[in-house]
Structure formats: structure tokens, C-alpha cells
Amino acid sequence: MAEQPNLLFVNLAVSDLDKSIAFYTALDFEFNPQFTDENATCMIINEGAFVMLLVEKFFQNFTKKSIADSKMITEAIMSISVSSRAEVDQFVEKALAAGGTTSNEKMDEGFMYSWSFQDIDGHLWEVLYMDPSAVNA
């Protein structure tokens, strides 16, 4: 029997699940209906990475700590890679059009290009392209 690869699940607290689903749908993400109800949804990044969007009250069941106000405090920066510089710009422009806000200006390191945004709950996302020839060198 083949061993299943490790999967990544990032859990984010959201204030309004329906608005969050609408925001990420505008960015072309899909959701697993098997793990979706009034408290949570499973956003599919790829076959091995997922973001669980959890209503704040439900999220609180999984931690004894206070939930960070992501509009005021950085709890993490989620980074997602894309296949070109143009796709970086397109992705962030979609996020801004869907109600997100700019986080940092575009960064061009030659071999790596990135731009970042905040989603509607203030979570930080970085979209980046890295030249494959620089990675394989």
C-alpha cells in the first residue's frame, strides 16, 4: 500500500464565512463541500495544501489562546507560488478587486518577484514567482 504524502492544513479565523468564501471564490479557489458547513469550509490550494476557514467562535474551540485580530496583528504570512510574474500581478489584482487591500509594494529580486495583499479579515498573503533556473542552480 502506497504511503499517503503529508498534507498541509492552515486554519484561519474569519469573521464572516460567506463573505470569505465569496472573496476566495473571486480568486478562483474551490472548496471541498465535504468539509463545509455553517462553521467552516476547506479551501483547496492544491492536492496537498488546504486552508480551513473557520468562523471565529468555532476557531476558538481549537485553542486556549486568544484569537489574534489579524487586522491589527500579524499572526502569519501565507505565501503561494504562481508560474509567472504576470500571474503574480493578476492574482493580486483579483484580490484587490474582490475587497482585499495591498500589504506591501511589489518586490523584484531578479530571480524572485512578489506582491502581497491582505484578505478581508486582514490575513497576509504573498504571491510569488521564482525563476526555476535559479532554484535548480
Rank of each mutant, 00 (worst) to 15 (best):
Q4R: 11
P5M: 14
N6M: 11
L8F: 13
L8S: 13
A13N: 10
V14R: 02
V14A: 05
D16I: 00
D16P: 03
L17Y: 11
L17I: 07
D18V: 09
K19I: 00
K19P: 01
I21V: 14
I21M: 13
I21N: 03
F23H: 02
Y24V: 02
T25C: 01
T25E: 09
T25D: 04
L27D: 04
D28C: 01
F29Y: 15
F29H: 08
E30F: 00
N32K: 11
N32F: 02
N32T: 03
P33Y: 02
Q34A: 14
F35Y: 12
E38F: 03
N39K: 11
T41P: 05
T41S: 14
C42N: 10
M43D: 03
I44N: 06
I45M: 12
I45N: 06
N46Y: 09
E47T: 09
E47A: 13
G48K: 15
G48P: 00
G48L: 14
A49C: 12
A49W: 05
F50E: 06
F50S: 06
V51E: 06
V51Y: 05
V51R: 03
M52Q: 10
M52D: 08
L54T: 01
L54E: 08
L54H: 13
F58E: 10
F59S: 04
F59A: 10
N61Y: 11
F62G: 12
F62N: 04
T63P: 08
T63Y: 03
K65C: 00
K65L: 14
S66T: 12
S66K: 15
I67R: 02
I67C: 01
D69C: 06
S70P: 00
K71E: 06
T74W: 00
T74V: 11
E75H: 05
E75I: 03
A76F: 08
M78S: 10
M78W: 00
S79F: 04
S81P: 11
S81K: 14
S81T: 15
V82D: 12
V82C: 15
S83Q: 15
S84W: 13
S84M: 12
S84H: 12
R85G: 09
R85A: 11
R85H: 13
A86C: 04
E87A: 15
E87S: 12
V88H: 10
V88C: 11
V88Q: 11
D89I: 13
D89N: 15
Q90I: 11
V92P: 03
V92Y: 09
E93Y: 05
K94F: 04
K94T: 00
A97R: 04
A97Q: 12
A97E: 13
A97P: 01
A98Q: 09
G99N: 10
G99H: 08
G100P: 03
S103A: 10
N104H: 10
N104L: 12
E105K: 11
K106M: 09
D108Q: 07
E109P: 00
G110Y: 02
F111G: 02
F111S: 12
M112H: 03
M112Y: 02
S114D: 08
F117G: 02
D119R: 03
I120Q: 06
I120Y: 02
H123V: 01
H123Y: 10
L124Y: 06
W125Q: 04
W125T: 04
E126H: 05
E126F: 01
Y129N: 07
Y129S: 08
Y129A: 09
M130H: 06
M130T: 14
M130L: 13
P132E: 08
S133I: 06
S133P: 00
A134F: 15
V135Y: 09
A137W: 00
A137E: 13
